[in-house]
């Protein structure tokens, strides 16, 4: 366990020193504040908690930004260490390969958590202070979107490791990470939309679509949060949430399942890597 903590501690130190945490926090904060500003117009006309309205926008923002930040954090984890020669040094010590990967995972998730909590936390505090109609509901909504964003982020950190252990060059790992992001966050949804358009009342829309939606951890995150805010009716893809064949709250299981699969797979591949 001490080896895992040592590796995690070093990753956190590097993440803080190379300004990763700062940069990611600022990006999240700026986007969150932009959305809060744009979202303040409709909230003026409704009774909804201002913060809750912002949180609805934040969960959409998270779907795009958090996986991107997580992948950028993790694609270099193993391929970069092979490139720089440090993996040989680490693996020459008595530490196991599973410990190396898990230590990095813990460290990267902490780095990501610092960024999300700082970025969304500061944005939430500004909205809370500036708006009139805010209360505990809004704070709970914010806490939920932050914690589920962390789960989504951790999942994509683990998926980034699969890319990182599968190739030897950092550049290739980076390209793979961008491809994963593009597929899961953009192309997958477009394909589903295409399917819906093609058979609006058919087997695909009624039976297959809800499952295909939650198989993707990013969409599952969106389904869960939209259902929780009870604003699903107003938001694109998750509109299907009302007609789900299962409780939309269960969708949050999907990122965790992917996290376990990705960590297991990357550990198995790392065991075969020649540093």
């Amino acid at each position: 366990m001490s080896a895992v903590l040592t590796i995690a501690g070093t990753e956190i130190r590097i993440g803080v020193r190379n300004r990763w945490v700062l940069l990611a926090s600022i990006i999240l904060l700026v986007f969150a504040l932009l959305l809060a500003l744009l979202g303040s117009a409709p909230s003026g006309a409704t009774k909804a908690d201002s913060l809750s309205v912002v949180v609805a926008s934040l969960s959409t923002l998270s779907v795009y930004l958090v996986p991107l930040i997580a992948l950028l954090l993790s694609f270099d984890a193993i391929a970069g260490e092979i490139d720089r020669g440090t993996l040989q040094l680490t693996l020459a010590t008595p530490v196991s390969r599973g410990q190396v990967l898990f230590g990095k995972f813990v460290g990267h998730v902490v780095v990501l958590s610092l960024a999300v909590v700082l970025g969304y936390g500061v944005a939430g505090a500004i909205v809370f202070a500036a708006a009139q109609n805010t209360g505990m509901d809004g704070i709970f909504d914010l806490a939920r979107v932050i914690s589920t964003s962390l789960a989504l982020g951790a999942t994509f950190v683990a998926i980034g490791y699969v890319a990182s252990v599968s190739v030897r060059q950092t550049g290739t790992a980076a390209a793979l990470a961008v491809a994963i992001w593009l597929f899961t966050v953009v192309l997958y949804d477009l394909a589903l939309l295409g399917g819906l358009l093609a058979s609006a009342d058919g087997f695909f829309a009624k039976t297959l679509f809800p499952y295909l939606l939650v198989i993707n951890p990013a969409d599952a995150f969106r389904v869960f949060n939209m259902a929780a805010i009870d604003a699903a009716a107003s938001t694109g893809l998750a509109a299907g949430g009302n007609a789900m064949p299962f409780l939309p709250q269960l969708a949050i299981i999907s990122p965790f399942v992917w996290m376990v699969i990705a960590l297991g797979l990357s550990t198995a591949i790392l065991r075969r890597v020649q540093p």
Binding site: A3, T6, I7, T10, I14, R84, G85, T86, L89
Partner: peptide, 20 residues
């Protein structure tokens, strides 16, 4: 071998000392 530039010499040696 290229050690992480952000870490000090002491931190790097201490990292490997802990792993060993």
């Amino acid at each position: 071998v290229a050690f992480p530039k952000m870490l000090t010499g002491r931190e790097i040696v201490s990292f490997y000392a802990k792993l060993k």
